[in-house]
């Protein structure tokens, strides 16, 4: 599609140039006047249409570049109730009555931080939280465009389902440099933050053992 437009415009340009050459032989009307008028009208129409097709930038990201460090620190010390609620992307409570549980991932090498808190009671419930400190581009919150990890209980296995690798293209329109020169806006220097900063926090009953030992997880210190 991206190649069609330039091709069409180039063809139109040559057709127009040819017509201009032919017309000039027979007609004395200045084509330039018409050309200028048509071009001006097209520009004005484009100006009128733009507000209807543009999408406003998402809200400004509130977190700072160290948000994920704070998150990991809080989870490490079991202070999950102190974590900013906006970081929670999934919260699940699973009824569970088996003596052991296996944690699995659909990725062979999964670097996700997993924190496990052993509850004091045997309440027969496993609580799972998926956290993400947010994904932002140039300070704008784009967290929603990325699909997070999904937790699912399948009999005696808690599955961490990562989405397939996502291919995301974002188009940003920038104001022209004679405008940004005076309004103080900075030109886009794309910086992304946070897409990998995900963490999982599990609260398991006191009597449930985690059966697989090779998964990388941290037991919380309270």
């Amino acid at each position: 599609m991206s190649l069609i437009l330039p091709a069409v415009l180039i063809i139109l340009f040559f057709i127009f140039a040819f017509m201009l050459k032919v017309w000039r032989k027979y007609v004395t009307v200045k084509i330039t006047h018409w050309l200028l008028m048509i071009y001006t009208v097209i520009l004005i129409i484009a100006m009128a249409v733009t507000p209807f097709i543009s999408t406003d930038f998402p809200a400004r990201a509130e977190g700072n570049k160290d948000s994920w460090l704070d998150l990991y620190k809080d989870l490490h010390f079991g202070a999950f109730d102190r974590v900013n609620p906006e970081y929670i992307v999934q919260r699940e409570v699973f009824d569970y009555d088996q003596p052991t549980i296996r944690i699995s991932s659909n990725r062979e090498e999964d670097g996700t931080h997993i924190y496990v808190e052993r509850k004091d009671t045997n309440d027969g419930k496993i609580e799972g939280f998926v956290y993400n400190t947010g994904f932002n581009i140039n300070g704008y919150q784009f967290t929603d465009i990325l699909e997070p990890i999904h937790l699912e209980l399948n009999y005696d296995t808690l599955e961490m389902n990562h989405p397939a690798i996502q291919d995301v293209t974002i188009a940003i329109t920038e104001k022209e440099f004679p405008i940004t020169q005076f309004n103080g806006q900075k030109r886009t220097n794309v910086t992304t933050m946070g897409p990998d900063n995900q963490a999982i926090y599990l609260r398991i009953p006191a009597n449930v053992e985690i059966s697989n030992k090779h998964i990388n997880m941290t037991y919380v210190e309270k």
């Binding site: 733009t50 543009s54 329109t173 022209e176």
Partner: peptide
């Protein structure tokens, strides 16, 4: 025409390139 053509770039990008265009509103003063 060159400043107004910025709008044409946005419109063409939207209709022909199929991207969602994120943009901040341009004030009349700007």
């Amino acid at each position: 025409t060159s400043i107004l053509s910025g709008y044409l770039v946005r419109v063409a990008g939207y209709f022909f390139l199929g991207h969602t265009l994120y943009s901040s509103e341009m004030a009349v003063g700007e």
